[in-house]
Simulated assay, not measured.
Amino acid sequence: MLNVHAKAVDPTVDGGAQLQQVVNIECLSDFTDAPVLDIQFRYGGTLQKIAVKLPVMLNKFFQPTEMTSQDFFQRWKQLGVPQQEVQTIFKAQHPMDTDVTNAKVNKTLLL
C-alpha cells in the first residue's frame, strides 16, 4: 500500500508548454508488483486516461550523510512514530543453508 501526496498544479496547460508535477510516495506496506499511476485529463473536450507503472524504489539512504553523533541521535529519536517503523515476523519457505549464508555475508563484507 502506498501513500501518495501530489503538489497542486494549474489545471490548464497551454499547447507546447510543460509543467512539473511533484509526487511524494510513501510505502506503507510491502508490494511485489509495480504500482500504477492513473492519469486522467481532457484534450479537445475528450477524457484521456493513461496508466503508468511507477519505478518506485527506495532512495532515502543511497547517499551518505556526515553528521555528528548528537545530530545522528536527534534524528534517530525522531523515528519513534509508529508509522515509521515496521517489523514483520514470518516463517521461511525454505530451510537456510548456513554455509551459503556465511559465504554471502563474508563476500559482502569483503566488497
Results as ranks from 00 to 15, higher is better:
residue 98 T to Q: 11
residue 81 V to A: 08
residue 7 K to E: 15
residue 21 Q to K: 12
residue 1 M to I: 03
residue 93 Q to K: 13
residue 18 Q to A: 13
residue 45 G to R: 04
residue 74 Q to C: 04
residue 107 K to V: 03
residue 82 P to V: 02
residue 53 K to T: 13
residue 37 L to H: 07
residue 14 D to N: 13
residue 25 I to M: 00
residue 101 T to Q: 05
residue 23 V to K: 05
residue 55 P to G: 15
residue 23 V to D: 00
residue 35 P to V: 07
residue 17 A to M: 10
residue 82 P to S: 08
residue 68 T to K: 00
residue 85 E to H: 14
residue 73 F to N: 06
residue 30 D to Q: 02
residue 25 I to N: 00
residue 40 Q to N: 11
residue 51 A to P: 04
residue 50 I to E: 11
residue 58 L to W: 03
residue 78 Q to N: 15
residue 84 Q to P: 01
residue 108 T to E: 15
residue 23 V to G: 02
residue 81 V to M: 03
residue 104 K to C: 01
residue 95 P to S: 06
residue 88 T to G: 01
residue 111 L to R: 13
residue 46 T to E: 10
residue 98 T to E: 10
residue 79 L to A: 09
residue 97 D to H: 01
residue 69 S to K: 10
residue 54 L to M: 15
residue 7 K to H: 09
residue 55 P to L: 14
residue 25 I to C: 04
residue 61 F to C: 10
residue 9 V to G: 06
residue 54 L to D: 03
residue 38 D to M: 12
residue 78 Q to L: 06
residue 77 K to A: 06
residue 44 G to Y: 07
residue 48 Q to W: 07
residue 52 V to T: 00
residue 66 E to N: 13
residue 74 Q to P: 02
residue 86 V to Y: 14
residue 91 K to Q: 12
residue 8 A to C: 06
residue 75 R to M: 09
residue 11 P to W: 05
residue 11 P to H: 10
residue 42 R to W: 04
residue 34 A to T: 00
residue 26 E to P: 08
residue 20 Q to P: 09
residue 27 C to L: 11
residue 63 Q to K: 06
residue 7 K to W: 01
residue 6 A to L: 09
residue 95 P to D: 10
residue 57 M to P: 04
residue 6 A to K: 10
residue 73 F to L: 03
